[in-house]
Design a protein around this nucleic acid. Sequence first.
DNA 1: CGTTACCTGAAA
DNA 2: TTTCAGGTAACG
Length: 280
Amino acid sequence: VPELPEVETIRRDLCPLLTGRTIAAVAVDPATAPLLLDRSPDAFQARLCGRTVRSVGRRGKYLLFGLDDGATWVVHLRMTGRLLWRQRDAPEEPYQRAAVAFDGGHGLRWSDVRKFGTWRIAERLDDPTPALGPEPLDEEFTAGWLAGQLQGRTAPLKSFLLDQRRIAGLGNIYADEALFAAGIHPLLEAGAVGADQVTRLRDACATVLREGIEHRGASFRDYVDASGNAGSVQGHVRVFRRTGRPCYTCGIAIERIVVGGRATHFCPVCQPRPPGGEGR
DNA sequence: CGTTACCTGAAA
DNA sequence: TTTCAGGTAACG
């Protein structure tokens, strides 16, 4: 569900609401706790209560709540996780699995149909996230750097783009959209991307993610922002889930294949199959 | 590197 | 009833 633009939208919404607020209580559904938390619900609550939020950050698809004692509360929404800012006495959310009450009468509700989401606490000196590639909207994400990463890789380019250790934050929607914007077939071997294509690919990744943030994320299914409102990216995609519908550029029907176990959408004309073509 | 499992509900 | 879902970790 949430990729970089969705997580960034939530981060921007929550930053002014949470910064300076102090955690008053943490409640977690006991059946969900073993999947959600990195410790017992009691230990988690004890670790967070009384802490004040100093920063609300993001790294890839991880939300990072910086606490006043140097620790970081690390949240990953995975497929169906939602963080909603609600008044204390607001009714429980559908599939609400946890809640964090803050001073001031509001709190965060955690809703997660599939229970894949994770909360953990990273202490001051811990790495808050696993090893991730660069932020695609940062300066360090250059064509030269990307070319070096692509070098020698045999995986399909689509799979490369989804690998968070290479680039942090692209998911299935924006990977398909970036490949369309760059005019590259998703099955092209990563190491076979040409020098001119690398530059287009770098720019395409940054552009689709920036536009995704501008449209406040993609609500094809479960995603909503911290107020419960849908984004509008789904009204602007060129290929994602447009199987059989005409390409906005050339009019040919968009195709759907499976790459690395993920649904993949592309235009067979605007993203021509590479010569010597990958098959499957 | 590719495949599978994790969990649940909506859509086909 | 079966398939599919925007993510990742753990497999072989």
